[in-house]
Computed example of a mutant assay.
Amino acid sequence: MNLLYQTHLGFNGLQVIMNTGEEELVDSKTVHNIFDANGNVIGQKEFPTDKMESEGTKKMVEIAGPLVDAIRLGKILVVDELDAKLHPFLTRKIIGLFMDKEFNRNGAQLIFATHDTNLLNIQYLRRDQIWFTEKDKSDSTELYSLVEFRDESGNKVRNDRNIEKDYINGRYGAIPFMS
């Protein structure tokens, strides 16, 4: 079965459309515990996700289907600004799911853009998985991999470098023009 998920957050709430040949609309709700004065759970209440949840929780609901689908079926998932609205630990966990060969048995791939410099770390990504884009003064964009980068002496970037610090200091380019 080939599933395709489409999400839309609008005035009528979060809608997740799952295409399985026939469109099926799935309403998203979250369940919260209700506590008494002593902190004991005395019940539960459903809330529409778009009304009672943080922007990060809404984004997780939006991308959960495509994430599971990609990993389960070995697909490529492309996400613009994966880190937007998500806690850095959650972003790292999502990346880790794709990097874990035991969990990602079908070889799914995650391609994402980010502004989270904390991810520029060999602990989370290999050098060949880190790519930079740099606009020139004519607004043309160059795309290059960290593994292709050479310093002034012609040496490749070593695995023990602090890539995040080097990036912030302009070593790899891809820094926005500030004028």
Rank of each mutant, 00 (worst) to 15 (best):
L3V: 12
L3C: 08
Y5P: 06
Q6V: 13
T7I: 12
F11S: 14
N12W: 07
L14T: 05
Q15P: 10
E22Q: 15
E23L: 13
V26I: 10
S28P: 08
T30Q: 02
T30D: 01
V31F: 01
H32L: 13
A37S: 14
N38V: 01
N38C: 03
V41I: 08
Q44K: 03
K45S: 08
E46T: 14
F47N: 01
F47M: 05
T49G: 02
T57K: 03
M60K: 15
V61W: 07
P66Q: 08
P66A: 00
P66D: 07
D69W: 02
R72Y: 15
R72A: 15
L73Y: 15
L73H: 15
K75C: 02
I76C: 14
V78R: 11
V78C: 11
V78A: 12
V78P: 01
D80R: 11
E81F: 03
L82A: 05
A84P: 09
K85C: 14
H87A: 11
R92Y: 07
K93D: 07
G96R: 10
N106S: 13
A108L: 04
A108Y: 00
F112H: 10
H115P: 04
H115A: 08
T117I: 10
Y124F: 15
R126W: 11
Q129C: 04
I130K: 05
F132Q: 00
K137V: 11
K137L: 14
E142H: 14
L146R: 00
V147R: 12
E148W: 00
F149V: 05
R150Q: 03
E152S: 04
G154I: 00
K156E: 04
K156M: 01
V157Y: 03
V157Q: 00
N159W: 13
D160I: 07
E164C: 00
Y167S: 10
Y167E: 11
G170V: 03
Y172Q: 03
